[in-house]
Write a protein that binds this DNA or RNA. Structure first.
Lengths: 153, 153
DNA sequence: CTCGGAGTTGAAGCGCACTTCAACTCAAGG
DNA sequence: CCTTGAGTTGAAGTGCGCTTCAACTCCGAG
């Protein structure tokens, strides 16, 4: 029976290193059964989870957020296509939002950077109140420093 | 004269912490003059650089790449609007590419995750040959593992 | 049974983008 | 002059997303 995948097989098929898979498992993003000898065996459905994880990462979502999303899948039964569709719909909305913001960014870039606006405070590019796209890779999100608020009242 | 900004002023006006500004300066992303007492003084044009840095970061560009881009600005003279326009044009292309990829991702997500395709090898989402969007926040880029290559020859 | 490749663990390390800290100096007001 | 707040430095710490390592076990072929 080819149902259960070893970690090496899952790694090969998903393109994700075994160490990363173990890391994902520790964080609760994927799950496995164990053999008598304590080795991991993955159901093939985990491939889909891994795919979802990598795809989501590529659009700038943190593993923690991905975990939350995956938690919306039923844990007791194998997720149906409908379960996945619901998940991907909500992700689709995220992508739409990111695309919208990126388009805004692009349009503003010529108008703002290329122009003479140095004050930036009110600049749409500098107003992350609508929680901008990728949020940067670092540990920190951009905080708009209320002390320089253009409209204090 | 209000030409030179202290680091605190630049921080307030840009919304970026002084420590981050010093960090950027160490990496060569921004520059400053020093007073007799060794304090940094920033020309107002540095505000534009900082804006450019933050905006670029938000679309997933690393500081190193941003530095390279900023290096294309003339170092001897104050960059003209034209200089900035050239830079933002090239960034605009980047954004266009990211937007394109994100759109593809979005369209593929329903079709791929929601469907039954478990093999993923040939899936467009799993083929980063066209060097996908955000590249993930981590230290690592996704390596497609040649051993699982669907077309070895 | 022996061998080697694949798997196991916890701990440590790494690269990025910063922040925090300690110890110090500078600059302006009273 | 003294104080206080802003600035200076290098070094160390932080959080994320992993990888690497050492030391060990498992498992299937010969």
């Amino acid at each position: 029976m080819h149902e259960a995948l070893t970690i090496g097989q899952l790694a090969t098929r998903s393109g994700v290193a075994p160490s990363a898979l173990r890391y994902y498992e520790r964080l609760g993003l994927i799950r496995s059964q164990r053999t008598g000898g304590n080795q991991r065996r993955y159901a093939r459905t985990e491939l889909r989870r891994v795919a979802f994880i990598r795809i989501s990462q590529q659009v700038g979502v943190s593993l923690e957020e991905i975990r939350e999303a995956l938690d919306s899948l039923p844990s007791s039964r194998t997720p149906t296509p409908d379960d996945w569709a619901a998940l991907s719909r909500s992700w689709r909305d995220r992508l739409d939002e990111k695309i919208r913001l990126l388009g805004k960014l692009r349009d503003d870039l010529d108008g703002c950077i290329g122009c003479g606006c140095l004050s930036l405070q009110r600049c749409t590019l500098y107003n992350p109140a609508d929680s901008l796209a990728a949020e940067g890779p670092g540990a920190r999100l951009m905080l708009p420093r209320p002390d320089s608020d253009p409209a204090p009242a």
